[in-house]
Design a protein around this nucleic acid. Sequence first.
DNA 1: TCGACTACCGAACACCGTTCGAGACCCGGA
DNA 2: TCCGGGTCTCGAACGGTGTTCGGTAGTCGA
Lengths: 262, 262
Amino acid sequence: MWSDGPVPPQRRDLRDPRGPAVARGRGARGGRAGAPRERRRASHSLESVLAETVALLDEAGEAGLNFRALAGRLGGGVGSIYWYVSSRDELLDRAADHVLGSVLDAVAPVGASEAGDPVDDLRTIAVTLFDAIVDRPWLGAYFMRNTEVQPNSLRLFEKLGQQVLRLELTPRQRFHAVSAVVGFVVGTAADMGQQPPEAVLSGEVGRDDYLAAAVDQWRALDAAQFPFVHHIADEFAAHDDADQFRAGLDLLLAGLRLQAGG
Amino acid sequence: MWSDGPVPPQRRDLRDPRGPAVARGRGARGGRAGAPRERRRASHSLESVLAETVALLDEAGEAGLNFRALAGRLGGGVGSIYWYVSSRDELLDRAADHVLGSVLDAVAPVGASEAGDPVDDLRTIAVTLFDAIVDRPWLGAYFMRNTEVQPNSLRLFEKLGQQVLRLELTPRQRFHAVSAVVGFVVGTAADMGQQPPEAVLSGEVGRDDYLAAAVDQWRALDAAQFPFVHHIADEFAAHDDADQFRAGLDLLLAGLRLQAGG
DNA sequence: TCGACTACCGAACACCGTTCGAGACCCGGA
DNA sequence: TCCGGGTCTCGAACGGTGTTCGGTAGTCGA
């Protein structure tokens, strides 16, 4: 986890959008040129590419993001994208960090006053991060994968850590605490973000009906063999993802408070 | 989360491997037949397909799993796989549930005695699940996605729940507790399972050296802007994934104990 | 012998990420 | 004015993927 490279000197990614973004792969193929027609040329920027990537991602999910569709939206050719990004993976890395910039901005005021409760501040940041990931499941998978290209991930990590710094703990305990919070937030959010097969999006079947149908099948199970499933069936049918997340987070933070001695 | 279908009546997946496993896609293409050579035909079974899938997954990771390689290992043709499974996604779903069967077997004795501490038993199951996922990162993404095809996922969920049933909590609290544990375990394990770019596997650069290099770059950061990163740099350089996970889990379980008033 | 059913096979298809030669555009210097 | 180099754009072609589908071989009961 977080086992990656260098670091970012500045706030936000106003980093130079320079260079042909060398790729790791090698090998030579070769393309022949067709008829040299006259065409209108598009002009992009790292910023515009990332913005359009995030928009496409939000509309169609990770599976819906492909270079041809993205190029079409940008009004350009596929090859141009590779001027800014060396691979699809790096595109996702950068897109993830791009939306994390907003998260960072949103939590900028948090923890400003020394008087505030550190754990409450930690909670606020965690909830904000969670909200950003739930309806962007792809974000979870690309969060904090390559800090060299993801300065905002590291800054968010630092921000969480600064709250924990105000608790009386050993360095190791602090490290574990932040790791746990991040793991829980990202894991839970990514998990919850998995869309129902084809129900809610089409609008035909409501989320509640969908859940109810699933629960009905749970209830059809042998009660002796699945006592717990029966026990929580009602709760599950009426549950709210955000509540569920916050309840778990509060359990974790309660444990942390206990460890910090108060 | 866990918003899916039907349920399994029996232990383990000795379910009927029948049917051409209808796919959702439609459309017609058409293949021409080549020279009708005489060939030795292979014969499979759902079990053997899943076993070989897991083996391939363990060797080459999710990216290395493709139908042609899998068919080659099975000594058959690509099309045959679709007799047992309707898509790559379902193959992964079933493969995930397949290895979860071993987890279920491993934790079978847990919670047998009423005298034991429920939270300790919960911890044992969680740790076992974690161990199964860490070196199988793909498992995390396919855990409990489609209970219709993943009976063992549901059974593991039930098993965790049965421990929580022994604590004095409301149904809602119990539901949230199990959800939190599952979210934390799966999320953390999937996160930790991401392999370092190309270092350790090739054997050239040791994991410690790799981590040390990353930490060096962290240390190069401005100390005033990144106090926490500096604070935990040593811990990170020497950290053990399993310890880190257990520390976070214990935080969560401490909060749960507190809630249960014991 | 005959059909129906099960299981297997692999060529063909659509689509995907990625490469690379070929330009277009801009601009400072000769 | 022409030159040359750097920056950026383009799209055909490549190798690879999941998936389909017509066809076929084996099996078994009638």
